[in-house]
Amino acid sequence: MRAEIRHVTEYRYQEPVWDSFNEVRLHPIRDERQNVLAFDISVTPDVPVSSHRDYFGNLIHHVHVHERHTLLRIEARTLVVTYPSRAPVPARVDSLDDHRAELTEFLIASPRIPTGRWADVFSVTAPLRGDDLPTFVLELTRMLYRRFKYTPGATDVRTPLTDFAASGRGVCQDYAHAMLGICRSLGIPARYVSGYIYAGADFVGAEASHAWVEVFLPGTGWMGYDPTNNTAVVEAHVKIGHGRDYGDVSPISGSYHGSTRGVLDVEVKVYDQQQ
C-alpha cells in the first residue's frame, strides 16, 4: 500500500503559555515491511525542529516554543509504502528458552503494565511447551477481539489495565496493553507498537493513532498482531515505533509554563494513493 498520512495536533489555551517543550513521535520507522518516501513536520508558532533517536531506535522530533502563545499546532505529513508481512515459521513455545535473556526488557513489568498474573486475570490458559507459538499468539489475538468491545471514550491513557479487564470496553491501547500483560506473564517477549491504520480496509482505529503488539517468534523475529481488529499486521498498518508500553511511544508529550489548561484536538487521515 502507498499511503499518505496527515496528522494534525492542536493545543489551544485560554491564557498565554510559554516555554512549551514537546517530544513528537510521528515519523514512521523504516524496516523490511515499510519504507518512508517523504516526511515533513510544520509547527505554529514557527520554531526550529530538531530530532534524535531514542533507546528503541524511534525518531523523535523536538518542538520548543519559548514565546508566549495561545495556540500550538503540529502537523506531520508522511508518504509511506507498506508491504505484506511474511508468514511466521512454526516454533515451539519452549524455543523461547534460548532468547529470553536477551529480551528481558520486553518480559518484565513496565509503568502501564505492572507485575501481575495477567493470564489469570484475562482467563488465558498457558500453552504447553511443545505447542506452536505462532498459533497460540494468533488465537490470543482472536480471543481478545471476541471478549472486548471497542468503545471510543470508554478509557483514556491513564486507565489501569485491571479496569479494562473488568469493564470489557476500551480502545486500541487497552487491547495492546492486555495482550502485552498476558504474553509477558507467560514468558513470551512482547512490545507495544504505535502507528496508523487505513480505514478503507474495514478496520477500526483509523480516526487517531493506532496501537498493536509485536511478539518475538524464534525463527521469524518480531511479528505484529492487532487484537483490536482480530488480525496479524497487514499492509494497512503503518508503524511509527515501539517500546515497552504506551508511555514509550506516545505521539506527543511535553510540558509548558502557565496556569491555564490546554484543549486538545487531533485529526488523523490516512489515504491510500493507489485507490
Results as ranks from 00 to 15, higher is better:
Phe56Lys: 06
Gly57Gln: 11
Gly57Val: 04
Asn58Gly: 00
Leu59Lys: 08
Ile60His: 06
Ile60Ser: 05
Ile60Gly: 08
His61Met: 05
His61Leu: 10
His61Arg: 08
His61Gly: 01
His61Pro: 03
Val63Ser: 02
His64Glu: 10
His64Ser: 15
Val65Lys: 05
Val65Ser: 09
His66Cys: 13
His66Met: 15
His66Tyr: 12
Glu67Tyr: 12
Arg68Pro: 05
Arg68Tyr: 14
Thr70His: 07
Thr70Ser: 14
Leu71Ser: 13
Leu72Ser: 01
Leu72Pro: 03
Arg73Asp: 03
Arg73Cys: 07
Glu75Pro: 02
Arg77Ser: 12
Arg77Pro: 06
Thr78Asn: 04
Thr78Gly: 03
Thr78Leu: 15
Leu79Tyr: 08
Leu79Ile: 15
Val80Met: 11
Val81His: 14
Tyr83Ser: 08
Tyr83His: 11
Pro84Ile: 02
Pro84His: 06
Ser85Thr: 03
Arg86Lys: 06
Ala87Asp: 13
Val89Arg: 14
Val89Gln: 10
Pro90Cys: 00
Ala91Pro: 00
Arg92His: 08
Arg92Glu: 12
Val93Tyr: 08
Ser95Asn: 12
Leu96Phe: 05
Asp97Trp: 08
Asp98Trp: 14
Asp98Gln: 14
Arg100Ile: 13
Leu103Pro: 03
Leu103Phe: 10
Thr104Asn: 09
Glu105Leu: 14
Glu105Trp: 00
Glu105Gln: 08
Phe106His: 09
Phe106Ile: 11
Phe106Thr: 06
Phe106Trp: 13
Phe106Asn: 04
Leu107Asp: 07
Ile108Phe: 09
Ile108His: 09
Ile108Ala: 13
Ile108Asp: 11
Ala109Ser: 10
Ala109Arg: 01
Ala109Phe: 01
Ala109Val: 00
Ala109Asn: 05
Ser110Lys: 08
Pro111Gln: 10
Arg112Met: 14
Arg112Thr: 07
Arg112Gln: 15
Pro114Leu: 09
Thr115His: 15
Arg117Ser: 13
Arg117Gln: 12
Arg117Asp: 14
Arg117Met: 12
Trp118Ser: 10
Trp118Glu: 06
Asp120Leu: 07
Phe122Ser: 03
Ser123Pro: 01
Ser123Tyr: 13
Thr125Gly: 03
Ala126Glu: 14
Ala126Thr: 09
Pro127Lys: 02
Leu128Glu: 10
Leu128Tyr: 04
Arg129Ile: 01
Asp131Pro: 08
Asp132Ala: 00
Asp132Arg: 07
Asp132Thr: 00
Pro134Tyr: 00
Pro134Ser: 03
Pro134Leu: 03
Thr135Cys: 02
Thr135Leu: 07
Phe136Asp: 00
Leu138Trp: 02
Leu138Asp: 02
Leu138His: 05
Glu139Asp: 00
Leu140Gly: 04
Leu140Val: 01
Thr141Met: 06
Arg142Trp: 03
Arg142Asn: 01
Leu144Asn: 01
Tyr145Asp: 01
Arg146Gly: 14
Arg147Asn: 03
Arg147Glu: 05
Lys149Thr: 15
Tyr150Asn: 11
Thr151Tyr: 11
Thr151Gln: 05
Thr151Met: 07
